[in-house]
Amino acid sequence: IGEIQRFIRDDGSVKVSRSLKEIGNKIRKKKDELTKQMGRSPTIHEIADALEITPEEVVHAQEAAKSPHSIHETIFE
């Protein structure tokens, strides 16, 4: 299943809801980590740099991580 998932991911046919949720979870972890490290809330660019993604992705994914998006995810994750 790992192979198949990687394949699906590579060809970009993975649903936005799912991909964003994954990035969103990474953002949440990285935010906690940097907050401890720096003793303050990290800026959006600091998060983006640390995760090697764009600030655009941070903004979009942070929102997506908030709530479960679909029955599909409930079943398959």
Binding site: D11, G12, S13, V14, K15, V16, S17, S19, L20, P55, E56, V59, H60, E63, A64, H69, S70
Partner: peptide, 23 residues
């Protein structure tokens, strides 16, 4: 330009497109 990209992405995401379609 970046603002417009995220704005459209956020709106379109309601239709849960694939990553390719979003890109």
């Amino acid at each position: 330009e970046s603002f417009a990209r995220v704005t459209i992405a956020a709106f379109i995401s309601q239709l849960d497109p694939t990553m390719d379609e979003l890109t």
